[in-house]
Write a protein that binds this DNA or RNA. Structure first.
Length: 197
DNA sequence: CGGAAGATTTCT
DNA sequence: GAAATCTTCCGA
C-alpha cells in the first residue's frame, strides 16, 4: 500500500481533513503494529477559528508544530487525561490541521484490546481519546513526521466514499465557530464517535 | 503569579 | 451529571 506523500498535506486543513476519510493510520511500536481506517475527522483552521488552539496565531510550546510544515503529528493532552491526535496541514506559518476523531480497527486489534481493556470493536477507537490509547499515541509522538516509518498514513485508494459533512462537536464555547461545517464522517460507518441520528 | 477553562472519557 | 487533572491564557 502506498504512503501519503508530503504533497497530500500541503493543502488547506478542510481539504486534508475530508481526504483523510478512508485512509489508513498506522503506528509501529515495540509491541507491534496497529492500523486503523480513518472514518471521522474535523478541520481546525487557526486564526479566525475560535475552536482552534492556534486562534491567536501565536506559537506556544504546545502548538508550535502547527506552525511548521504539513504532514507532521500534533499530539496534545486534553483535560489532563487524554491525548488527541492531529495532522498538521498546509505549509509553514499556516496553523491549520485535521483532528482524527475515530478509527475503524484494521490491524493489531488484539493489541488495541489489551491497551484499552475493552473487547468491543465498535468502542476501541470511537473517539479522539480512545483511539490514542488504542494506537499508543502519546506526547512521545508529538512532532513525528508522517512521511517517516514509525507513524504514517496509507492510501488504500478507495473510490466513491460517501462522506457526510456536519458541524463540529464539543466546542460550544467557540461562538460562531460552532456552526462551521468542518466535521467529516463516512456515512453509515458503525465506528464513529457519535452515532448518526 | 493565581485562577479559570478546555478539540474527553468513564462511571454513578 | 461529575470527576479526573495538565497546559495555556489572561487579568492583577
Amino acid at each position: 500500500m502506498k504512503k501519503l506523500d508530503r504533497d497530500f498535506y500541503l493543502r488547506d486543513g478542510i481539504t486534508v481533513a475530508r481526504d483523510l476519510i478512508g485512509k489508513i493510520l498506522a503506528h509501529r511500536t515495540r509491541e507491534g503494529i496497529t492500523k486503523g481506517r480513518i472514518v471521522e475527522t474535523e478541520a481546525y483552521m487557526g486564526p479566525g477559528d475560535k475552536a482552534s488552539h492556534a486562534y491567536r496565531n501565536t506559537p506556544t510550546k504546545r502548538t508550535v508544530v502547527q506552525f511548521g510544515e504539513g504532514g507532521f503529528a500534533y499530539v496534545y493532552l486534553i483535560y489532563g487525561m487524554y491525548y488527541c491526535m492531529n495532522v498538521v496541514a498546509n505549509g509553514p506559518g499556516v496553523p491549520q490541521m485535521a483532528l482524527i476523531r475515530a478509527l475503524q480497527p484494521v490491524d493489531g486489534i488484539d493489541l488495541m484490546q489489551k491497551r484499552r481493556g475493552v473487547d468491543d470493536m465498535a468502542k476501541l477507537c470511537s473517539g479522539p481519546g480512545k483511539l490514542c490509547v488504542a494506537m499508543d499515541i502519546t506526547k512521545s509522538a508529538y512532532g513525528l513526521d508522517l512521511c517517516g516509518g514509525e507513524l504514517y498514513i496509507e492510501d488504500p485508494r478507495e473510490a466513491d466514499l460517501d462522506i457526510v459533512t456536519t458541524k463540529r462537536l464539543n466546542i460550544d464555547y467557540a461562538d460562531e465557530a460552532r456552526d462551521f461545517p468542518w466535521r467529516f464522517i463516512e456515512k453509515g460507518n458503525p465506528f464513529l464517535s457519535v452515532k448518526e441520528k
